[in-house]
Design a protein around this nucleic acid. Structure first.
Lengths: 93, 93
DNA sequence: GGGCGACACTTGCAAAATGCAAGTGCAACG
DNA sequence: CGTTGCACTTGCATTTTGCAAGTGTCGCCC
């Protein structure tokens, strides 16, 4: 499997890169991600589980039953790729 | 819609970026893409149609009933993003 | 000129991913 | 002790993906 295929195995699923992009601005809570991205709640829960298992993000416990999601170093390392893709997307206008 | 979401609308589907990556080495024929990538034939046909419609690649007619697929300038502009993603994928080893 | 193989697909259907809407559990607040 | 906010889960419809087999066209060979 190529390096690109390996990357897509982790962040190639729908919404995955958008979630990571949102977290580049700092830790976010579940409800914030949901509202900002417009992602279906079950998909968001699934992606967060997968991305956590892949070591891309971690859960930060906050008060009582709330938590925030934050990128790990591996997640932060996606910044370059995300910026490059977003720049390409911007050129389509 | 964010720039990243716009990009993913075009190249976010399964196999799309892998097809583009393969074409970065130069024009390829249908059968070559199929064998090299291991992509199901109906998916390949669908992706090639979509990527052509999006202006990412074009068909080059060859002899009789054969053709090759080549990246347009817009397709070539994906090189940076693909390299960045592949590099990230390689770091997972 | 009829059969054969290569090439580029299409078609039919099963399996998996995605999306929508409603429901669950739990802690704090009043 | 009922209500509210948050973080999910669950059930089911829709869409996407995948597998396998079939179609059409052209050139080649006998």
């Amino acid at each position: 499997m190529s390096d690109l295929a390996a990357a897509l195995d982790v962040v190639g699923a729908r919404w995955a890169l958008l979630v990571v992009e949102r977290l580049l601005d700092g830790p976010q809570r579940y409800g914030d991600l949901q509202r900002d991205l417009g992602v279906p709640t079950n998909m968001l829960a699934t992606r967060l589980r997968e991305l956590e298992a892949a070591g891309v993000l971690t859960r930060l416990p906050l008060r009582h039953n709330t938590r925030a999601y934050a990128l790990t170093d591996r997640g932060l390392a996606l910044r370059e790729a995300i910026v490059a893709l977003a720049r390409w997307g911007a050129e389509q206008a």
